[in-house]
Amino acid sequence: MNIHRNLGLAGLATATLIAIAPVMAAAQQTESKLYEVIERGHLIFGTGSTNVPWHFVDEKNELAGFDVDMGKILARALFDDETKIEYIRQAPDARIPNLLTNKTDFTCQFMTINTARAQKVEFTLPYYREGVAMILNKKGPYPDRASIDKALADGKKIRVAVLQNADVEDTVHDVIEGVEIDQYEEQGLVFEALDTGRADGGIVDLSNVLWLSKKFPERYAHGGDGEKASSYGCAVKPGDQVWLNFINTALREAMNGRDFDVYAASFEEWFGVRPPAPKIGFPIENR
């Protein structure tokens, strides 16, 4: 009798769970950041404002750059309107804390994807693959790579400036060996050290070197590339798969699908080259 009653209760509980499962799933879904953002009517987007060509303030005092364009791609996917963004201008140190404390919905700020960070936030698909390179001052004593190499061969000391980082020695030696390294807290200070002659060269992102040698050809020269690559991704607070999936869908379609022209135009504007267009047929991302 007891067995029957217990079986009956178990059956009832199972039936109840099956009945309410879709409701619970729906409730979970509506708790996603995606629906919160749609209901709010604008995206709260964390990015920086002091690094050309990634995120900087243009002549109209508006944010511009490749990272900013990624935010616009997402706003267009959400609202069909790239202006529905509230920008939070944040320092690189604030990228993760601002996500975790809900001050931003998502962040795109030349953030290198690595496993240490992936324990704190969830990364989207990479939207750029970055390398390191050396930038030289054309008006300084070493205006090109040949003059640096010759100085090193003659036993002279060469000092390069670089942004502080955990694996900074590896980064520098990926581009040039046998130099002394000065670390700076901010990328801008690396350029300042180069301009004022406190450094003979600067090791920075390849994208920066390409941008600067294009914008100021009389001031800066490209002094060689490293071989290692790192991926830049946007990031969201962990635990919201619906939101992450949506952003990935928007980015993937911009890089490989029907919104490719928008992504490609931005890429060309900031890096000077147009990325290869996805071919119709087999999906490029599965290659």
């Binding site: 404002s49 002091t50 690094n51 050309v52 900087f56 303030v57 243009d58 201008r89 801008g188 200070l189 350029f191 300042e192 301009d195 600067l212 100021f216 001031r219």
Partner: peptide, 13 residues
């Protein structure tokens, strides 16, 4: 921060 933004954009630190 406005100063830093302008300095970074124009590379006139």
């Amino acid at each position: 921060i406005t100063i830093r933004e302008l300095a970074a954009r124009e590379f006139l630190y």
